[in-house]
């Protein structure tokens, strides 16, 4: 990325890999378990979190010098809740179909610990532009893991990707099902998301030994 100075590039790229919020900081695990049974839901959640975290980070950063430190957590919570409610209302008014599809995910964004984590750790101490980049980077790092987990869970659990039957028809026994392959229904249950995330962490740390804690 030649457009941004090196320091800014680092803000975006770091959380994607070596400082990933899910696999390294272990934040946002709960939503990663809940919504990754389908690839589409994972993608939608990733996009929503990118939007909320980047805008929220900028707002908190703009207010960083006037927020009373005693109640800063509550203020952060109010900012993210307000953003989420406004987005939800606008979607309901102008894109009702989409808001039906997103249903609970919009509300779930509030509970995502990555958002409060980045507000507290970064936005409160940095300029709006840097906070914006940090928001995009962290949300994207979170999104990548979500999409990888969603990809494997939907493929192995339902035999589809984004709803398209890529492995054939399990009932009429076409495609790979003709050879006796079966969908693994266990993949659709939440514990398998943890196991997939565990495998990702394993692969990542075996490739980069510096990430292994003492």
């Amino acid at each position: 990325m030649g457009i941004l100075p090196k320091k800014d590039t680092k803000l975006i790229l770091d959380p994607l890999f070596d400082n990933n919020p899910i696999t390294i900081q272990v934040l946002g695990i709960c939503s990663a378990l809940a919504i990754t049974a389908q690839l589409k839901a994972s993608i939608v959640m990733a996009i929503s979190v990118i939007a909320v975290l980047s805008v929220g980070n900028v707002i908190i950063s703009l207010m960083r010098n006037i927020i009373p430190s005693k109640i800063r957590i509550i203020i952060q919570l109010i900012v993210v809740a307000t953003l989420v409610i406004i987005v939800d209302q606008i979607l309901k008014a102008f894109s009702y179909e989409l808001s039906k599809q997103l249903s609970v995910f919009i509300g779930l964004i509030i509970t995502n610990c990555i958002i409060m984590g980045r507000f507290e750790a970064f936005a409160l101490a940095n300029s709006p532009w840097r906070a914006f980049l940090d928001g995009i980077g962290n949300a994207a790092g979170y999104g990548i893991i979500l999409i990888i987990v969603g990809f494997f869970r939907e493929l192995l659990g339902s035999g589809t990707l984004l709803g398209f039957p890529v492995l054939g028809d399990p009932i009429n026994k076409t495609g790979v099902y003709a050879f006796g392959y079966e969908n693994n229904g266990f993949m659709l249950l939440s514990p398998m998301a943890l196991i997939v995330i565990g495998l990702i962490i394993w692969v990542q740390r075996s490739r980069n030994k510096e990430l292994i804690e003492e």
Binding site: N65, I66, I67, P68, S69, K70, I71, I74, I75, I78
Partner: peptide
């Protein structure tokens, strides 16, 4: 000034 109780209260009311 952001540490003061009075400021905290006024800030939360405005918020």
């Amino acid at each position: 000034f952001t540490e003061k109780n009075s400021y905290t209260i006024i800030f939360s009311i405005i918020m």
